[in-house]
Amino acid sequence: MSYRGLTWDHPRGLNALAAAQGPVTWEVQPLEGFESAPIADLCAEYDLVVLDHPHLGEALAHDCLTPLDQVFAADDLARIADGAIGPAYSSYAMAGRQWALPLDAATQVMALRPDLAETPPTSWAEVETLSQQGGVALSLAGPHAALSFLSVCAALDDALDMRDGGWPADGIAERAYDILAPLAARTPAHTKTLNPIGLLDLMGRADDIRLIPLVYGYVNYTRASRPVAFQDAPRAGGRPGSILGGTGICVSRRAQVDDTLRDHLLWLMSDATQRGFIPDHDGQPGLRSAWADPKVNAAWGNFYSQTAATLEAAAIRPRHDGYIALQTRASAYLRDAFDARTPAPQAARRLRDMFEASQPERTTA
Rank of each mutant, 00 (worst) to 15 (best):
V152F: 07
L194N: 05
A184Y: 00
D201A: 14
H190E: 15
L200Y: 01
G165W: 09
N195K: 12
L180M: 06
T187R: 03
L183P: 05
L202M: 12
D161Y: 07
S151M: 06
P188H: 06
A173F: 07
I209C: 07
G198N: 06
N195V: 13
A206W: 07
I179V: 15
T187Y: 05
M162C: 12
A155I: 00
Y177M: 00
D157K: 05
R205I: 10
P196Y: 01
E174S: 10
D164Y: 11
I197N: 14
R175K: 14
D208C: 10
T191N: 06
D178S: 12
G171S: 13
L199W: 00
A154W: 00
H190I: 10
Y177F: 13
L180G: 09
L156T: 02
I197Q: 13
L194M: 11
Y177E: 08
T187E: 09
A169L: 10
T193R: 13
A184D: 03
A154I: 01
Y177S: 07
A159N: 12
C153H: 04
D201E: 15
P182T: 00
A181K: 11
A169Q: 14
D208A: 15
P196V: 03
L156H: 02
W167Y: 13
A176S: 09
L156G: 03
N195W: 13
L199A: 05
K192F: 09
L202S: 13
L202W: 03
D207P: 06
L183F: 07
D170Y: 09
C153G: 06
A159E: 15
T191E: 07
A169C: 07
L202E: 13
A189G: 08
P168E: 01
G198Y: 00
N195G: 15
P196M: 01
G198R: 01
L200C: 02
W167M: 09
A176W: 09
N195M: 13
A154K: 03
G166T: 02
